[in-house]
Simulated scan of single mutants.
Amino acid sequence: MSASALQAVPPKTALVTGATSGIGWETARLLAERGRVVIVHGPDTESAHHAVERLVAAGADRARLRLAVADFRRLSQVKRMAADLSAHHPVLDVLVNNAAVAAPEEHTLTEDGNELAFQVNFLAAYLLTRELRGPLTARPGSRVVNVSSITYRTASLDWDDLNRAHRYSRYAAYAQSQLALTVFAGAAAPAGCTVVSVDPGTGATALLPVYVHEGEGESPAEGAARVVRLCDPRTPLVPGAHYDTTGPSTAGHGERTARRLCKAADRLVTV
């Protein structure tokens, strides 16, 4: 291929949610370092702009950084962001669903009527992935990487009460959101797109000390490196698998469970 032809090939584009701090910011930094156009998502304009400035200070090319703003506590903002991204980025090669919050001490519902952690950590990611189906299928080989946590192993999906209205604990609510994000990766992916989930490592995120012992774990940069490896087209992926330090696994949940979860999610994000 000639040099002019190579120059005509646009760089691949990646969207990283929750990219204002921790693993999300480090993931954006590493992807930018690899020459990607990186869409930096934040819950508000100020935090997203600040994240971009920090990326530029760390050596990222400002010309290849974009902003995306949406408060995942409001599903209408997720839809609006997806529509804007689809209009301005008709081709999306990587979506990293990283945004997450710790479940609050008290049972808390969003204005959409969903338990806070379940919506921010799972439903928003599910809705965003669904709404970006067009850009994600525009070029073969796209990838969706759901950043989960080790807590999913202790969780169960309460099909009769996914919003935990009757039996609430912050640990159970957070763990269920991580399990849902992991199970969702096993659902039918858009044509030409591979969806997986990954545990970035205990302690790699600021959320995990709430749920595991203090002092354990690694840095956000180390966790981000695991995420970015799965974003690399040279890394072979097992569709629907969950990745941890030992490699891919099926996470013990079948396609039937994934379909049931997606059906429930469709209902919750439509209300």
Rank of each mutant, 00 (worst) to 15 (best):
N146S: 10
V69K: 01
P135W: 03
V56I: 15
L162C: 08
D61Y: 01
S149M: 13
N98I: 02
A99E: 12
L95Y: 05
E111H: 08
D44N: 12
S148E: 10
H49W: 11
A68F: 08
V96Y: 03
A87W: 02
V96A: 06
A99R: 04
H107E: 07
P43I: 04
V40M: 02
A102M: 10
S142I: 04
Y152C: 05
L85T: 01
L127Y: 07
R62E: 15
Q119P: 13
T45F: 05
S86L: 01
E33C: 10
T137Y: 06
A28W: 00
R133M: 06
A103F: 07
Y126V: 11
I150K: 12
L67M: 10
R29E: 09
N163F: 09
V101L: 14
S149I: 10
R66N: 10
A99Y: 05
V52N: 00
A32N: 06
R80T: 14
T137Q: 15
G113C: 13
A70Q: 04
A100I: 05
E111F: 02
V40K: 03
L128F: 03
N97G: 09
S142N: 11
G113I: 13
N121K: 10
L31G: 04
W159H: 08
E106H: 09
P104G: 03
L116S: 06
N114E: 13
H41N: 14
R143C: 06
V78D: 03
L85Q: 09
R54H: 13
T45D: 10
V56M: 08
N121S: 11
H166Q: 09
A138M: 01
R73T: 12
R130P: 00
A63N: 11
R62L: 11
R143N: 09
Y168S: 07
G113H: 14
A57C: 04
L109N: 13
S142F: 04
V52I: 15
S148K: 05
S86H: 10
V52L: 12
A32M: 03
A165T: 14
D71W: 11
R164H: 14
A28F: 01
A138I: 01
G141S: 08
R133T: 12
L75T: 05
